[in-house]
């Protein structure tokens, strides 16, 4: 049997060491979350919990966390649907027609992200109070849409731009109305991009914290707000469980985005 070349062996060892290092960087902070979520009792200076158990998982699943998860999910769905209904026609228009001040319009959607989040949302909150929309689901939906629109508008504009206009012209040419051509040609081709855009908006809303806390308090409870409240109360176990649950959609997003977000969309980002 031929012996492996010493160089190969060294390289394999190095690669494995690098892998372990990367895994440690990524998973070490997460592992503490996992440990905390199963902890009953853990006092300093003990290196490991003194008592483990499912007590807090049971408590969380019976109690408020489930309510927060539900309302957060509900809000994210509404935000996603409304945002995309507004975005698709606008993005199509921006991608296909010589709209004046195109760059300025696209920049407007970025503005809420261009300044520190806190002052922006505090100002928005006072406005929403005047409109009697504060501490309500509609107020939270509005504030989420302000932040989410940029993701949807920018991605969808890039998606529509990546579809050659001649594909629709070919349909018009054969007698299809503009609406018919849009739904039989542009939309099916934009679907992968639409899925990616949907996920971005959904996750933005699902994970949004500052605006939700300021606008939604005290009645609207979403998962990030719930996590904040419990960790402020030093219930680290509950906060850890909430964090772990919050992570799930993010991981799902990574997997799905990898499938649907095509590189040509990204290459269109700067060229609008």
């Amino acid at each position: 049997m031929p012996r492996p070349h010493p160089g190969t062996l060294i390289r394999a060892t190095l690669r494995m060491a690098a892998g372990v290092f990367v895994a440690f960087i990524i998973f070490a902070p997460l592992s503490s979350l996992v440990i905390w979520s199963f902890t009953r009792k853990w006092f300093w200076p003990h290196p490991f919990p003194q008592e483990l158990g499912l007590f807090y998982w049971r408590k969380v699943l019976e109690g408020d966390l489930f309510r927060a998860l539900q309302s957060g999910f509900f809000i994210a769905v509404i935000v996603t649907v409304l945002t995309l209904l507004l975005t698709i026609p606008l993005a199509y228009l921006l991608a296909r027609y010589p709209v004046p001040f195109k760059a300025a319009i696209l920049l407007v959607f970025l503005l809420p992200h261009a300044f520190p989040q806190l002052p922006v949302f505090v100002n928005a909150t006072t406005l929403l109070y005047r409109a009697h929309l504060a501490a309500s689901v509609s107020g939270v939906v509005l504030i989420h849409m302000v932040g989410a629109l940029v993701y949807a508008v920018w991605t969808m504009t890039a998606v529509f731009r990546s579809i050659p206009a001649s594909l629709e012209e070919a349909a018009w040419n054969l007698g299809a109305s503009r609406v018919k051509a849009f739904f039989t040609v542009a939309m099916p081709l934009a679907t992968p991009g639409l899925i990616a855009s949907t996920l971005l908006v959904f996750l933005y809303s699902f994970d949004e914290f500052t605006g939700t806390l300021l606008v939604g308090s005290p009645f609207v409870l979403t998962l990030p707000v719930y996590m904040y409240r419990t960790s402020v109360g030093y219930e680290l176990q509950v906060a850890s469980i909430a964090a772990l649950i919050l992570m799930v959609p993010g991981l799902l997003l990574l997997v799905v985005l990898e499938r649907y977000l095509k590189s040509e969309y990204l290459s269109m980002f700067g060229r609008i």
């Binding site: 050659p164 070919a170 040609v185």
Partner: peptide, 13 residues
Amino acid sequence: TAMVFQQYALWPH
């Protein structure tokens, strides 16, 4: 009219 395009413009889906 019916047009044959330079890049064919066939619908890939």
